[in-house]
């Protein structure tokens, strides 16, 4: 009995010693292996491509010098993975905000306001419990000038004994006054790897 317990303990100890230790990954210096699924590096590449192209095309430059107001519309996830498209749009929003060219409204969205507090705070109007000098007045919310929409596509192919997974990140920036797409971009991300790898 004692021998069996010792053998099991030793086995567990050996297995624990073999396990890779948990460690932090610095995105600025990550030489780690590539996954067949979309990872943070893919979103970063797509966002970098999109933002640099938007800035250099002049599409996000308001000729009067003020910042454009952008709303994030629908980004369709047409892949086999569960993707939170905010992983892409947030990077774009942050970078455009930092550029000083575009600010994003959280008061408008396809499924209601992104930040419901925009309207909740206005419900305090005429409440006797609140100092009305600090309550938002009527007509202060800013309507968007631009809308960001897009789609993430996935196509799988068998290439010899390998698998090829193609992702296409397609984005459009629509000028809401005219309904015209004033900027469009597509970032293909192509990965080839073991047929046994799972891409969903």
């Amino acid at each position: 009995m004692l021998i069996r317990a010792l053998a099991i303990s030793a086995g567990i100890a050996v297995l624990a010693g073999c396990a890779a230790p948990t460690r932090y990954i610095d995105p600025a210096a990550d030489d780690g292996p590539v996954a067949m699924t979309m990872d943070y590096r893919d979103f970063e590449k797509a966002a970098t491509d999109a933002v640099e192209d938007m800035l250099s095309s002049g599409a996000v430059n308001n000729p009067d010098g003020s910042r454009y107001i952008m709303v994030v519309s629908r980004i369709t996830n047409d892949t086999m993975q569960r993707i939170d498209t905010d992983q892409l749009t947030k990077k774009i929003r942050v970078s455009l905000l930092r550029s000083g060219k575009v600010v994003t409204t959280t008061a408008v969205g396809l499924n209601g306001a992104e930040d419901e507090m925009n309207m909740k705070a206005r419900e305090l109007r005429d409440s006797e419990e609140f100092d009305q000098s600090g309550v938002q007045r009527k007509g202060t919310l800013q309507a968007p000038d631009l809308s960001l929409s897009g789609k993430i596509l996935q196509r799988n192919h068998k290439v010899g004994k390998e698998q090829q997974v193609e992702y296409y990140i397609q984005l459009s920036l629509t000028e809401l006054a005219s309904g015209l797409a004033i900027w469009e971009g597509e970032t293909p991300i192509i990965k080839r790897g073991s047929d046994k790898s799972v891409s969903w």
Binding site: A28, E44, A47, T48, V51, K91, S95
Partner: peptide
């Protein structure tokens, strides 16, 4: 001046 991402292309 901070850019969009930090990783190498």
């Amino acid at each position: 001046v901070k850019g969009v991402g930090e990783s190498y292309r």
